[in-house]
Design a binder for these strands. Structure first.
Length: 587
RNA sequence: CGGGCUGUAGCGCAGCUUGGUAGCGCACCGCGUUUGGGUCGCGGGGGUCGCCAGUUCGAAUCUGGCCAGCCCGACCA
């Protein structure tokens, strides 16, 4: 197996010989998270990019190109240098200046936008397609998660929120078209906006077993959300049951050996749903955003110890905790930190009477009484706890992880949890960057007016990986015609038969002349080997030229997806294949 | 960053337990054979055994350190 080369025959200069191309496959790994793309993959990549570019241009976005190597100072000013932390590649140049390899381009595009003078110049949407870098702690799954990848990122600037809504909708519609054309059955889901800041966050998810995200999905009304953001409707609490267990004051009781929710449920008649689970987290302080010289937080180690309460049968969704508190990051507290703060080890923790630490509780606990929770004394718990009466909850929020089978918030039907690949993400940034970098234009009244931003991204190689996940069978890849590396492969069944070889070459030329992207397999190999290579590589159409058909003046045209084969007169092959290809691309 | 596994020819692997100077399949080169679903035969070329140090007369093999890759977890716009 070798890297493909170009045909050596000078008479055919420029005509790729595919003796090796078909066998070489698509890519080679250089190191974890970095791949060389071989000619086949490059062709697919260019076609994917072409689709994205067309649809971006169609909504009036303009293509720009911004540096991938940027001064760290730009990121310092927006405050993101610290937020991105180790995920950002950093390097010094010969003068000792700090530089970074970019993850996105909000800062630089905003700098460009500072040249806008008038509200009359808005709205604007600018996009670029280039390499992004992320020092992933763990690159994996081939092109699915790499440290170096191609991203289409676009940024919109509008006069006001209504304008932003329009730009956002335009992008959303463009993304729907893009994924449809790429053959990716992406569904838009509500998502957390994470470290980018902003709201109206929508991810495009391709359902797949290998996906790294969980999607909450309602089969009835189509409500869809990332599990980090999604919620569900809970059965109303039973006030009578609560009242039956209510007491005038929390009552302590010994729980020797109890360490877990299950222990307590089984040994002390306290169903998980009646328990208050007390988690201790360390929240890193939110970034003070806005204004020039935004403050960079200390590196996040000295955070705020916080009690997080969820119902015993619920799990905490950490991203919701981050979103609710504005923290830049959260981590579970260490056992020593917990003992130092509360005087008890995990297993007997609770918020009753705790006033020295912030307490944030999940909505499912609001108004509950007759509850059971830890007493902050090892192996002692309380029962008869009335949350409103006995605890000082500083903030209520939706914090729990949605579980399959819970009722849809919109329609009440049972929810499903499906895995998905995040192939695109669009969201409304708001004024974060125009604020931080002080961008204004003159408004209709002559006064300065701050543009509002949106940003929108598609990972190109990840999209390729998603396409393959969706479009393959036991024989290999089945590329959608829109992105296949070639439209058609000519397989010469008997390369050593001069007449057959000549007919194959002729068919190849005719297909080229018909405007198709065509590859000829002129290896002196057996037909069976060529067939299986063509199938593995996944070219949508195959024209087989062989002795058998030649005797009857025909070639065979085979569809990769269906295996359907048609005999076509030799002089009609180009026309036939062109029509077939056009029809496949239309699908 | 934790846990597990793996580094031997371009690719995939065996050899390591029990130290004696490297082998198999595919790929590659030559000749013949075969020729519409991965022919068969004969003959070849190709390896710092991840790196460094140690033990030993002798190390792919034993010991220590380091590096890299894969999987799980943590992490992740």
């Amino acid at each position: 197996m070798h890297i493909p080369t170009l045909r050596a025959d000078p008479a055919d200069a420029g005509a790729p010989s595919h003796r090796l191309l078909l066998r070489a496959g698509y890519m080679r790994q250089l190191m974890a998270g970095h791949y060389s793309l071989l000619p086949l993959a490059v062709r697919v990549r260019l076609r994917v990019i072409a689709v994205i570019r067309e649809e971006m241009n169609r909504i009036g976005a303009q293509e720009v190109l911004m540096p991938m190597l940027q001064p760290a100072e730009v990121w310092q000013r927006s405050g993101r240098l610290a937020v991105m932390g180790e995920e950002m590649f950093r390097l010094k140049d010969r003068k000792g200046a700090d530089n970074v390899l970019v993850m996105t381009a909000e800062e630089v595009v905003t700098t460009l936008a500072s040249e806008l003078d008038s509200y009359r110049q808005l709205p604007q949407s600018w996009y670029q397609i280039n390499t992004k870098f992320r020092d992933e702690p763990r690159p994996k799954a081939g092109l699915m998660r790499t440290r170096e990848f191609t991203m289409k990122d676009s940024y919109s600037f509008d006069l006001d929120a209504d304008g932003l809504d329009k730009s956002f909708e335009a992008h959303r519609a463009a993304y729907v078209r893009i994924f449809e054309r790429l053959g990716i059955p992406a569904i838009p889901v509500d998502a957390s906006s994470g470290a980018m800041g902003g709201s109206g966050s929508t991810e495009f998810m391709c359902p797949s077993e290998i996906g790294e995200d969980d999607i909450v999905h309602c089969p009835q009304c189509n409500y869809s959300a990332n599990r980090e953001k999604g919620t569900s409707r809970l059965p109303a609490a039973d006030p009578a049951a609560d009242a039956a267990l209510a007491q005038d004051a929390p009552e302590r009781f010994g729980t020797p050996g109890v360490r877990t929710i299950d222990d307590l449920a089984q040994r002390h008649d306290a169903p998980a749903g009646r328990q208050v689970k007390t988690l201790v987290y360390v929240l890193s302080p939110p970034l003070s955003s806005g204004g020039h010289g935004g403050v960079v937080p200390p590196d996040g180690q000295q955070g705020q110890l916080t009690l997080v309460l969820v119902r015993g049968d619920h799990a905490l969704e950490e991203q919701k905790l981050i979103d609710a508190t504005g923290a830049t990051s959260v981590r579970p507290a260490q056992a020593e930190e917990i003992v130092a703060a509360l005087g008890a080890a995990p297993g007997s923790l609770g918020a009753v009477g705790v006033t020295g630490l912030p307490v944030i509780a999940d909505e499912a606990l609001r108004g509950r009484s007759g509850m059971v929770t830890g007493a902050n004394v090892d192996e002692v718990h309380y029962r008869g706890v009335d949350i409103a009466r006995d605890m000082t909850v500083g903030q209520w929020a939706d914090l729990r992880t949605v579980a399959a089978g819970e009722a849809c918030v919109m329609c009440g039907a049972p929810l499903e949890i499906v895995k998905g690949i995040e192939v695109g993400h669009i969201f409304k940034l708001g004024y974060k960057y125009t604020d931080a970098l002080g961008v204004t234009v003159s408004g209709p009244d002559g006064k300065p007016l701050k543009p509002i931003m949106g940003c929108y991204g598609i990972g190109v190689e990840r999209a390729m990986a998603a396409i393959i996940e969706v479009h393959h069978d036991g024989k290999g890849i089945v590329w959608p015609a829109s992105v296949a590396p070639f439209d058609v492969v000519v397989v010469v069944a008997q390369q050593n038969d001069a007449a057959v070889a000549e007919a194959g070459e002729l068919a190849y030329r005719q297909l080229l002349d018909a405007g198709l992207d065509v590859i000829i397999d002129d290896r002196p190999a057996r037909a069976g080997e060529k067939f299986s290579d063509a199938e593995l590589v996944g070219i949508p159409l195959r024209v087989t030229i062989g002795k058998r058909g030649l005797a009857a003046g025909t070639a065979e045209v085979t569809e990769r997806a269906t295996g359907e084969t048609t005999a076509v007169p030799l002089d009609a092959v180009a026309e036939h294949v062109r029509n077939l290809s056009t029809s496949l691309k239309g699908k």
